[in-house]
Design a protein around this nucleic acid. Structure first.
Lengths: 377, 377
DNA sequence: CTGAAAGCGCTTACAG
DNA sequence: CTGAAAGCGCTTACAG
C-alpha cells in the first residue's frame, strides 16, 4: 500500500530543562537570615489569621463565605489572604470536610475520537460542578484490580468509559461501596449494566444505517466490526446486532462480519482489501469512521469507486470525516452529551441533595454524504 | 461544499440511570440494628488494627512495607486488610506525609491530535512513576487566575500543554512556588520559557518541509498557519518562522501567510478555497494535518489535482493522514515523547533525589507520501 | 519488633 | 460575631 519514504531530520534533541532559581546547583552568595520576598512554603490558614490578627477559625469562615463575619473583619482577612497569596489546601479540606469533589475516569484510550469526546463531555460537566477530574488509563499489562482499587482509593467517585472489554471488566470490579457511573455500549435486551450507566442506541442507529443502504437498492450489506465490550465474537456488539437485525428484517441472510481486531484505519484497510476482492460486495457498514477510512483506502487501491461501485458508511462522525474525499456518510453520536449525563449520574450518588437534570444527550443521526449511493445498474 | 442531508433518527433518549440499592426511594423493610454484610463506610487503619489485635501504627508499617515487623504479625495484619477490604485513604496519606504524587495537566484542548497524544505521553509517564493525573481544561470564559490557582491548590505539580495563547498565559500565571513544567512551541532565539519546558524543533522541521518543496521545483511555498502561542500575528509561530526562513534562504520573498484562525479542517477548507483561485499556487505547507485535509478538500472542489497541480504538506502525522487519498506528506512529531520528557522535568522538582533520565523524545521526521510531487512542466 | 504522642491543614460542632 | 476543642486518617519521630 502506501510507500512511506521516511526522511530522517532533526534527530537531535532540542529539549531544555531550566533549573529553577535557587536550585542546589546555584547556592547563591551567602546564607541570609532574611527569608526573602518569595515565601518558600505555602501560607496556611494560621499564617493568614496571625497576619489579620484574628483566630484561624475566622479565616475559615471567610474562605467559606460564612455569613456571620463582621464586614471589617472580613476585609482584614481578605487583605491578608491577598498579600500572603493564600490558597486553601485542597487535601486538608477534603480530609476534614469529607467532601471530595473529585472524580477519576477509567478509560483504556484517550486519543480515539469517541473516547476523547466522551472525556471532554465529562470534563466539562465536572468543571461546571466544581469537581476536579482525574484520568487513569487502563492497560492490559497492569493488574486490573490494582488499578481499580488505587483509583478508588483516590477518593471521590469513579467514571468508566466502557466501550471495550477491558473497561467493561474494570467496571465489574469496582467495589460496591465506591460511587461509580459509566458510559457503555447499549446493553442487550434484558441485561443491565452493573452500575448506573448511560448509552446511545447503537443498535437502532446501526439498524437505520443498514436499512438506508438496503433502500438504496443494495442486495446485502457487509459489516466491519469494532471490538466490543460484550461477548467474545465480533458479531455480538450492539452495532453488529442492529446491522444483522436490519438484514434479517429484510429477509437477507447476514454475511460473516469482518473486523473486530482493532479500532484504527489499518484494520479497516486490511479488511477492506478482502472485501474489495469480492465483486458482489456493494455496501459496507463500518463500526467507526477510522475503519471506514481504511476501507475507503483499500477500495481505492483495488480500483473500485465509491460510491459508484461500493457504498460505505462509518460510525461516530469524527471531525475529519466531512473533509475526506469522498466525504463519509456516517452516524453522528453525541459523545459529549453521554459524558455529561454520565457525570450527572455519578454526582447524584456523591451529593445527597442533588437530583440529576433532564438528560442532554442528543441522540444519533445518520449523516448522508458522498460515500453512499444507489447500486450501479 | 459538502451537502449534508441530515436524516433525523432516534431522537428519543435511551439513557438509563439505575438508582443504587438502598437509595432514598427504596427505604427497605425496616431499620435494622445489624449493619448488614456490606460495610457502609471504608475501613480505616484503626479498624484493621482492631481486627488484627495490634496497634494502628503497626498497620501503618505493614502497608508501607516497613522492614521491622514480625512475620507472623504481618500475616495477621494482611489478613485483616483482606477481609475488611481496606484501602489506604490517599487524602490522609497526602496530608500526613506531605508527598502528593499527583500532577494536574492544564490544557485548552483534549481532542486535537497533538494535545491528545501529548496528554497520553504524560499519562503514561505519570502512571509509571506512581502519580495520579488530573486534567483541567482551560477555557476563555473562565478566569485564568482562578483556574490556575485552583489547580495549584489541588497539590502536587502542574503540567501545561502550552501550544496556544491561552495555555501560554496560564503558564505565565503559575505562582513561583508551585512546581511546574510545560511542553511548549519552540521558543524564539534568545527567549526562554518562564518554566522548565520541552519542545520539538518545529522551526527546523518547517524549514526542512519547505526546502523539500523547493527542491521539487516549486517557485514558492504558501503557508496556512495554526494559531500560535506567541505574538499576535499568524506569521510569528515557529513553524511560520521555519517556513519563512527556508524561502528567504532560497532568495524567495515569502507570500502573505494564510490561516491562524483555528486548528480544524474547516479553517483549512476556507483558506484552501482562496489559495485554489490563484493558479500560481503550486505548493502549500499547512500548520497541521487537519488544516491540510481541509486544503485538500478545497483543491478537490476547485478541480485542482494533488499532487499534479498542487503539492500539500501537513504537520503532526495524525493517525488518519496515512489513509486519506491522496495520502498526506507530513511532519511526524513525537508528542508522547514530549509528554514523557516534560513529566520527568516536573518530577525532578517534586522529588529531591530524582534525576531526570535521558530525554526520550524522538525528534521530527518528514514523511513523504502522495500529496507532494514535482511541479508540472 | 511494637506502642503512645504529636501533627499535617483544614472543618464541624460547641461555647461564649 | 468570634474563639477554643476535637477530629478527619494517616505519618513521622520518639519511646520502650
Amino acid at each position: 500500500m502506501t510507500v512511506d519514504v521516511v526522511t530522517a531530520h532533526n534527530r537531535d534533541m532540542d529539549v531544555t530543562g531550566h533549573t529553577s532559581p535557587g536550585s542546589p546547583s546555584d547556592p547563591g552568595p551567602e546564607p541570609r537570615s532574611d527569608p526573602g520576598p518569595e515565601p518558600r512554603k505555602a501560607a496556611s490558614i494560621r499564617d493568614v489569621a496571625q497576619a489579620a490578627g484574628v483566630s484561624y477559625q475566622t479565616v475559615s469562615r471567610v474562605i467559606n463565605s460564612h455569613p456571620n463575619v463582621r464586614e471589617e473583619t472580613r476585609k482584614r482577612v481578605e487583605a491578608a489572604i491577598g498579600t500572603l497569596g493564600f490558597r486553601r489546601n485542597a487535601t486538608a479540606f477534603a480530609l476534614a470536610s469529607g467532601v471530595t469533589r473529585s472524580v477519576t475516569v477509567l478509560t483504556s484510550n484517550t486519543t480515539l475520537y469517541g473516547y476523547a469526546a466522551t472525556l471532554q463531555g465529562l470534563e466539562e460537566a465536572a468543571r461546571a460542578a466544581g469537581y476536579s477530574l482525574g484520568v487513569k488509563l487502563l492497560t492490559p499489562e497492569e493488574d486490573l484490580d490494582r488499578t481499580v482499587s488505587s483509583a478508588a482509593a483516590d477518593g471521590g467517585g469513579l467514571m468508566v468509559i466502557g466501550f471495550d472489554r477491558l473497561a467493561a471488566s474494570a467496571l465489574d470490579r469496582v467495589p460496591e461501596n465506591v460511587p461509580c457511573a459509566a458510559v457503555v455500549e447499549a446493553p442487550s435486551h434484558g441485561r443491565t449494566p452493573p452500575r448506573p450507566a448511560v448509552w446511545a442506541d447503537d443498535r437502532e442507529a446501526a439498524r437505520a444505517a443498514t436499512a438506508h443502504l438496503l433502500e438504496l437498492g443494495h442486495r446485502t450489506v457487509h459489516y466491519v466490526a469494532i471490538p466490543t465490550s460484550v461477548g467474545t465474537r465480533r458479531s455480538e456488539g450492539p452495532r453488529a446486532q442492529g446491522w444483522r437485525g436490519a438484514l434479517e428484517a429484510a429477509g437477507v441472510t447476514p454475511p460473516e462480519p469482518h473486523g473486530g481486531k482493532g479500532w484504527d484505519a489499518r484494520v479497516g484497510y486490511d479488511e477492506g482489501r478482502e472485501l474489495a476482492r469480492d465483486p458482489g460486495v456493494t455496501a459496507i457498514l463500518c463500526g467507526n469512521d477510522d475503519l471506514a477510512l481504511g476501507v475507503l483506502r483499500a477500495l481505492h487501491h483495488a480500483g473500485r469507486s465509491v460510491p459508484g461501485d461500493v457504498s460505505v458508511i462509518g460510525f461516530d462522525d469524527a471531525p475529519h470525516s466531512e473533509f475526506v474525499t469522498p466525504s463519509l456518510t456516517t452516524v453522528r453520536m453525541d459523545f459529549q452529551g453521554l459524558g455529561r449525563d454520565a457525570f450527572a449520574l455519578l454526582r447524584s450518588q456523591l451529593e445527597n441533595d442533588y437530583r440529576p437534570p433532564a438528560p442532554t444527550f442528543a441522540g444519533t443521526d445518520l449523516i448522508i454524504r458522498e460515500s453512499t449511493g444507489p447500486t450501479a445498474v
